[in-house]
Structure formats: structure tokens, C-alpha cells
Design a protein around this nucleic acid. Structure first.
Lengths: 169, 169
DNA sequence: CCGCTTCAGTTGTACCTACAACCGATGACG
DNA sequence: CGTCATCGGTTGTAGGTACAACTGAAGCGG
């Protein structure tokens, strides 16, 4: 537990920082050019598109997009202004708000997904061997448990049953 | 190549996106609380602190911090206003600007580094096995070559012919 | 029923980043 | 030498995010 990082650790860290710095720009760039949407916008729309009735509560949506509630609130308001999402108060809990994907929003996701997936493949997945893909899942999973100990974000499979974090492929 | 992602690929991708979304916040948070500096600010100061005469040209500094020139220009101006950095036109090239870490900036880096390294260890490095650290370096390296094909950023041990072993003026 | 606390979201402000327009310096060329 | 293209960097501005303060609904104890 040195105060500094070893050579191997530093090599990994420097590269990880670079990826974290550059990847968002690449994702945002493609989506903005081709669909006039940020990566976070797309993430919101995608999560809604997978939900039953294309509807989720704001809190749940925030969880699935790794976002804070204020951030999500601003973004959903803008998406609503663009007609891609609509909001309605939850009938059973006066405090809650349900966000629902409109038909236009659904169409947007359908039209945007292929290009986005292609970008993900081109810049990440296809750069890796199948083994590395598996390793990446394990590594990111381990890091996530530190970044988000309660697992509130990212919808990780709960650490309660049978989960062994110290295994890498 | 399929139009969608396989289950394994999706598992890796979802987790990577979560890390990319959450990690900057954790790094920024610690540095802002403990040193009133963003992670990018710190990166700038750290790169200068490692350079000969604590001086680098703006373009070279942008490369080493994976940043665009406009972004760096704004940040360096603010750092200069805080007395952590100073700028001076390069005597040999009237177009170029040299950024130099002041004594105050040097002190700031020295005082800030331990806490930052501890955060990096706590949330990333120590979450991984030594094998995973090595794997991460390989994975991030492979991804970087796609994100930044020319190796302009990130100062990768590049496939660039001839190498770019330049000295700062 | 009243008051307190917590929950779910929203809003307002400050800050940071991206993009594009811009400026002076440099270097190639005739 | 002039002209032009390019380089290195700065500045203006629009847009997105973070943080904190706020509103209103639910839940709980008395």
C-alpha cells in the first residue's frame, strides 16, 4: 500500500483516465451529429424504451442512467419540450412523476440505435478480443462496487447472493 | 458483425458506461473538496510538475492532458489568475505560449497528490487484482488506439513513425 | 388533527466545456 | 519582398452539469 503507484498501476491508470476523458466526446459527437441528442439523452430514451409501457418513475430512471435527480429533471424537461418524452404525476403517489416515451421518442430510439451500436463496436468492442471483453466486464464491475458501494446506480446485480467479486476470466 | 451486441458484450459495455459516467464525479469531488481544483486542473498541474523546468508549450500540454486547445486555454487562464501557473510567449516562436508551474502551483501539487492517489487506489486500483490491473492496461490501450488513432492524445508509446521526443523550449 | 421528518422532484445559479470565429506569427512561394 | 495558407493560441457564446435551496406530498408520533 505505497503512497504512490507502481509502474504497472500507473500504466493502467494513465490509460484509463485517457479513455474516460475521450470516450464521452466520441459518443456525444456521433449522437449529436446523427441524431441531435447527447449520449445521456440517448441513455434516458433507451432505458425508457426497454421499460414496461415505456414508462419509468424519475427516481428509477435516474438510477438506471447513473444520474442525479436534478440532472435528470433538467434533461427530461428538455426532452419533453422536444416531444420525445412526456411526464405525468403518478396516481398512487402524489410525489412521484412518471416519464413515458412518446411515439416520436420511440421512433427516435429505433432510428438512432444502429448508428450508436456501430460507434460502440468501432471504438470499443471490436478493439478487444472476446477474452478482453470478458475481462472488461469483471474489471468494470469491480470498480463500480467501489464507485457506487450501495449499488444504487448502474443496476448491478445485488452483491448479496452468490456474487464473487474477486474472479476474473 | 451483428447489428446488436451479444450478452457478454452488453455486460461489459453497460458497466463501462457506468464507470465512465461515475468516475469523473468521484475524482472531481475529492479534488474540489480537498484542494479546490477540478480533476482536469490537477492533471494540468501534474503534467507541468513532471516537465523539465516545470514548463510546457500549450499544444504539448493539451496533448498530455487529452484536451482541446480552447479548453486548455480557458483552464490555464483561470489557473494563472489563481497564481498556480504563469504564461509567457515563447522566445523562439512568436505564436507559441509556454505555461510554467509557479512555486505556489508546485506546492499545490505536492500537497494534493497524496489525497488524490489515495482516491485512485480506493476506487480503482485496490478494487482490482494485480492481473486485472495488467488486463486493464491492455484493454484501455486497445481502446485508446481507436478513440485516438493518431495517438495525438494520451502520449501513447505510439506507432507514430520517428517518435515525438521533443524538448520544451 | 398538528407538527416534524423524510421523500420525490423542480428550479435557480454558478461553473465548465464545446464549437466556431478570430488574430498575430510563421513559412512557402513567386 | 508581398501574398497566401497554415500554425498556435485566445476569445465569445451557447449549452449542459453540479450544487443548493425550495415546493409539495407522504408518513409518523403525540
Amino acid at each position: 500500500m505505497a503512497e504512490w503507484l507502481s509502474e504497472d498501476e500507473m500504466a493502467a491508470w494513465v490509460r484509463l483516465v485517457a479513455v474516460v476523458e475521450l470516450l464521452p466526446g466520441v459518443l456525444d459527437g456521433q449522437l449529436r451529429r446523427d441524431a441531435q441528442v447527447t449520449h445521456f439523452d440517448y441513455h434516458v430514451l433507451a432505458m425508457l424504451s426497454e421499460a414496461p409501457d415505456r414508462t419509468l418513475r424519475m427516481t428509477e430512471l435516474a438510477t438506471r442512467t447513473n444520474a442525479t435527480l436534478p440532472r435528470l429533471s433538467h434533461v427530461v424537461r428538455r426532452l419533453e419540450e422536444r416531444g420525445l418524452v412526456e411526464r405525468a404525476p403518478c396516481p398512487w403517489d402524489g410525489r412521484a412523476t412518471n416519464a413515458r416515451l412518446t411515439d416520436a421518442g420511440w421512433a427516435k430510439v429505433r432510428a438512432t440505435a444502429p448508428g450508436h451500436v456501430a460507434t460502440v463496436r468501432e471504438h470499443v468492442i471490436d478493439a478487444l478480443t472476446p477474452e478482453q471483453v470478458t475481462q472488461l466486464a469483471g474489471i468494470a464491475d469491480a470498480v463500480l462496487r467501489r464507485l457506487d458501494p450501495d449499488g444504487k446506480m448502474a443496476g448491478l446485480p445485488g452483491d448479496a447472493p452468490g456474487g464473487d467479486r474477486r474472479r476474473a476470466g
